[in-house]
């Protein structure tokens, strides 16, 4: 379990300090998919960087499987448990073939050759890139590149995966592919924290965490949030068009559940 215990974080600049998070307490359990939403500047990315000890809290504690993230002797223990994937896959791809790129992490940790091949194969299979081992990464589509970046993190066999807007550069199909991979990883027992601007991504989550101005304004199941229009407004969230269609249909007497945010789930209610 990753525990954030009353966490505050301030960025120090020449002109003073800028608070990014305050009083944040939340958790991420193995096998749980948590979607993190909130406007620009609400502290989402800071939360991601705190999760694996890339940043240390100004106040409070971040604890990963009972290890304090500031414990200097166990930095690598924390980082190998929590994988981090960023927005732009082009900044995270290092090798000249898909296979070498995924192998880069385990190789650097000194993983044995045979078990490394196994890890690379498994990671590529999980993200649906089997068969592309010898391709040059720059010839992949955006969605494939982002799944390659995820495979690179998976090859380190992290217990938790934190993704900071991994679909921002992708088209709708690429986005759907990545969401699908996240669901499968969760089912296999990985704890997933998915930071996104797309409310529609919340429908697939076990829990939704909403940040505004560095504080948690909602932490709970998606259905409760989505059914509460005023809370949504307070969180600066608006339903995607298909969610508004569901709302209109409900008003017309059709029994559509509040967390129906995909075409399939809306039409299933008709």
């Amino acid at each position: 379990m990753i525990e954030f215990i009353d966490v505050a974080y301030e960025y120090r600049t020449a002109g003073g300090s800028v608070p990014a998070l305050r009083g944040v307490s939340t958790t991420l359990a193995p096998g749980e998919l948590v979607t993190v939403l909130g406007p620009n500047g609400s502290g989402k990315s800071t939360l991601a960087r705190l999760a694996n000890g890339l940043l240390h809290p100004s106040e409070g504690r971040v604890v990963v499987d009972t290890i304090d993230s500031t414990d200097a002797a166990r930095v690598w223990d924390v980082r190998s448990r929590v994988g981090l994937v960023f927005q732009n896959p082009d900044n995270q791809i290092v090798a000249t073939t898909v296979e070498e790129d995924v192998a880069f992490g385990p190789e650097n940790l000194g993983v044995e050759r045979e078990s490394m091949h196994q890890r690379v194969r498994n990671a590529l299979a999980t993200v649906g890139l089997s068969g592309l081992e010898q391709r040059e990464p720059h010839t992949l589509s955006g969605g494939q590149k982002q799944r390659l970046a995820i495979a690179g993190a998976l090859a380190l066999a992290p217990a938790y995966l934190v993704l900071d807007e991994p679909t921002a550069m992708l088209d709708l199909q690429g986005r759907a592919d990545v969401i699908d991979v996240l669901g499968r990883l969760r089912d296999a027992g990985t704890g997933i924290m998915h930071i996104t601007h797309h409310l529609a991504d919340a429908a697939a989550a076990d829990r939704v965490l909403v940040l505004t101005g560095g504080s948690v304004v909602y932490d709970g199941v998606p259905a409760t949030l989505l059914a509460d229009t005023r809370l949504m407004q307070r969180c600066g969230l608006t339903l995607p068009p298909v969610g508004r269609l569901a709302e209109e249909l409900r008003a017309a007497g059709v029994d559509v559940p509040p967390d129906a945010l995909t075409a399939e789930s809306v039409v299933a209610a008709l």
Partner: peptide, 18 residues
């Protein structure tokens, strides 16, 4: 064109299919 249609339109296509 290798694109996913917006969910709004997909919902209406599925409704037609149904």
């Amino acid at each position: 064109a290798g694109l996913k249609a917006p969910e709004m339109l997909l919902a209406q296509m599925l409704a037609r299919d149904a």
